[in-house]
C-alpha cells in the first residue's frame, strides 16, 4: 500500500516535471525568436549606419578630388605655357588669356560656387572669352593635359545660352 502511494507520488512528480519542462521549452523558443528579431533589427540599423558613413566618406573624397583638380589648375596658371603659346594674347593686350579663362570655367563648374552669373559677367567684358579665335595652341602646349580651348568654348556657349534665356 505504502509502496503504491510512493509510486503514484513519483508518477505525479514525473508528469509535473515533464509539463514544467515542456512549458519552459516552449517559453524559451519564444524568447529566442524575440532575440533573433532584435538581432536582425540591430544588424539592419548597423548596416544603415555603415551606408551613411560610406556616403559621407564618398562626399569627402569627391570634394578632396575637386580641391586637388583646382590646385592642379592653379599650378598650370602659374606655369603659363598656354598664355605664351596664344597668338590672341600676343595681338590683343586686353585679352584675359587661356589660363585665367580655364580657371573661370573650373569655378563655373564648381558645385560649391553658387554665383555663376558673376563668373559669366567677368568673362563677357572687354578682352573676355569672346576674344578667343579657337586656334587651340593653349591646349596643344598645356603641360598638364588640360584643355583651355574647350573650357573657353564652354564659357562662350554658357554666355550665349544665358543671352537666349536658357540655363546650362
Amino acid at each position: 500500500m505504502k509502496r503504491t502511494a510512493v509510486i503514484i507520488v513519483l508518477l505525479i512528480l514525473l508528469i509535473l516535471s515533464a509539463g514544467t519542462n515542456t512549458y519552459l521549452y516552449l517559453n524559451n523558443e519564444e524568447a529566442m525568436a524575440q532575440k533573433e528579431l532584435e538581432l536582425i533589427s540591430m544588424r539592419d540599423s548597423m548596416q544603415r549606419e555603415l551606408m551613411r558613413m560610406e556616403d559621407s566618406l564618398d562626399a569627402i573624397v569627391q570634394s578632396l578630388q575637386e580641391e586637388n583638380q583646382m590646385l592642379a589648375n592653379k599650378v598650370t596658371e602659374l606655369e603659363g605655357d598656354c598664355y605664351s603659346a596664344c597668338d590672341t594674347v600676343a595681338g590683343n593686350p586686353d585679352y584675359l588669356g587661356p589660363a585665367a579663362l580655364q580657371r573661370a570655367w573650373t569655378l563655373y563648374n564648381d558645385v560649391k560656387d553658387a554665383n555663376k552669373d558673376a563668373i559669366l559677367d567677368a568673362v563677357s567684358g572687354k578682352g573676355g572669352c569672346h576674344s578667343c579665335h579657337s586656334m587651340g595652341s593653349c591646349t596643344t602646349y598645356c603641360p598638364n593635359e588640360l584643355d583651355p580651348l574647350s573650357a573657353i568654348l564652354g564659357l562662350k556657349r554658357a554666355t550665349a545660352k544665358r543671352f537666349f534665356g536658357g540655363r546650362k
Binding site: 567684358g125 572687354k126 578682352g127 573676355g128 569672346h130 562662350k156 554666355t159 550665349a160 543671352f163
Partner: peptide, 12 residues
C-alpha cells in the same frame, strides 16, 4: 555695345 553683344551680332 559690349564685346559680348558684338560677338552675338556677328554670330547671328
Amino acid at each position: 555695345m559690349s564685346e559680348f553683344h558684338l560677338y552675338m551680332a556677328q554670330r547671328l
